Amino acid sequence: MGFKLLSKLLVYLTASIMAIASPLAFSVDSSGEYPTVSEIPVGEVRLYQIADGVWSHIATQSFDGAVYPSNGLIVRDGDELLLIDTAWGAKNTAALLAEIEKQIGLPVTRAVSTHFHDDRVGGVDVLRAAGVATYASPSTRRLAEVEGNEIPTHSLEGLSSSGDAVRFGPVELFYPGAAHSTDNLIVYVPSASVLYGGCAIYELSRTSAGNVADADLAEWPTSIERIQQHYPEAQFVIPGHGLPGGLDLLKHTTNVVKAHTNRSVVE
């Protein structure tokens, strides 16, 4: 069995187990497998329904001669939608809004960016022009300005110390501490036991640490421990890039980060 097929099978099995364990909360999309990078042309966006009122959005972007996937989250909030992270750029984010209108038909009224990198804030200006209120932590807003990236308009308070959590509509926002970046936030959907790890969490097929220019490698494993301790009931975990899975993604990420750190020390 090929690795790609095995990865998709694991996603399907995880979703099936969740649907059985929580039949009222989960209505997993039966329309197909989780979209992969090879299936999404740059400039297009796919939506994948995880649970009743919960979707991931998947886009792709060219970077350094390669094409990478990027995940975000959409959560229903009454007759409105909360968006977590842009679709990595203005063109993708405009396509995301169009796809949401086509498939869901509810307005996106608020959006949260989970850290300051372009795959999370690139497209904020498109959201703002569409009347979406954009939010991020003060740290993310400051770092985005320093980096020359787009800056969300509103500040999220109460997320300055490791372990801080605040309720934001249908989700809980959690600051686990520094990891992929010093400002990275985690998003949890309690009604569906869905954990969105953003770039602080890796997919299972990833074996290298990737972009760690703004990471705190020493603190990252401790931050992941905080996530595990705060959300032990999480059933569906979405990484910032690639295929979702279960809580095993947290341990896998820790292993990859520690291996990278150990290699760096040896070198």
Rank of each mutant, 00 (worst) to 15 (best):
A192S: 11
L195C: 00
P176Q: 02
L250C: 13
S193L: 09
T36E: 13
V237N: 02
S38A: 10
H180S: 00
P41V: 06
V166L: 12
Y48D: 09
N92G: 13
L185I: 05
K8E: 06
A144T: 10
H230M: 06
L13Q: 10
P232V: 14
A192Q: 12
L9A: 07
N262D: 09
A179W: 03
P221I: 11
G177F: 00
P190I: 04
L250D: 02
Y196C: 02
P138V: 06
G89H: 04
P41N: 12
L10E: 10
E150K: 04
A215W: 13
Q103A: 07
G122L: 13
V121P: 03
D183A: 00
N184L: 02
D164E: 14
S161P: 10
I151S: 11
G245Q: 05
K102M: 14
D125R: 10
A94W: 14
V212Y: 10
P239C: 01
G89Y: 04
R206I: 14
A25W: 07
G53E: 10
E203P: 09
I40R: 09
D77Q: 09
V11K: 05
A94I: 09
G43E: 10
L9V: 07
T114M: 02
R128D: 05
K4H: 07
T114R: 00
V37S: 10
P138I: 07
A90G: 13
L156W: 02
A259S: 06
L185C: 02
E39A: 11
Y231S: 03
V166H: 14
A95N: 10
E157C: 07
N262W: 10
A133T: 12
K258S: 11
A19D: 15
E44A: 10
S208N: 05
V75C: 03
E33I: 08
V187R: 01
V256S: 14
I186W: 01
A51T: 04
V28I: 04
A136I: 02
L195N: 00
I238M: 15
Y135L: 07
Y188S: 11
G148F: 12
L173R: 00
V212G: 09
V265A: 11
G78E: 09
V212E: 09
M1P: 02
G72E: 01
E39K: 11
H180F: 00
V37L: 09
G123M: 02
G65Y: 12
S113G: 12
D52G: 09
L156E: 02
K102V: 15
T14D: 11
V266F: 13
L185V: 11
N184C: 00
A66L: 07
N149L: 09
P170I: 15
H241M: 00
G177Y: 00
E80D: 13
I20V: 09
S155Y: 08
S137G: 11
Y68L: 06
K102H: 04
A192D: 06
S223N: 15
T93R: 00
G177I: 01
R120I: 01
G246K: 05
Q235E: 13
G78S: 06
R142N: 15
R263H: 05
S162M: 14
G89I: 03
G131V: 04
V124Q: 04
K258D: 08
E225H: 04
S7T: 06
D119Y: 00
K91C: 14
G2D: 09
L173Q: 01
K4P: 05
E150A: 08
L97T: 05
S16Q: 13
L6E: 06
E80C: 15
V42M: 07
P41C: 14
H154A: 09
A218W: 07
Q235V: 08
L159Q: 01
F63G: 09
D125P: 03
A218D: 10
H260I: 10
S181Y: 03
V187C: 01
R120G: 09
N149E: 06
A130W: 08
L204K: 12
R141M: 05
L250N: 00
G210H: 05
F236W: 07
V257E: 01
G105D: 15
L47S: 04
G123K: 02
D118P: 08
E267V: 11
L82F: 10
T134R: 02
V257P: 01
V121K: 00
A179D: 03
T114S: 08
T86K: 02
H117W: 00
E150L: 04
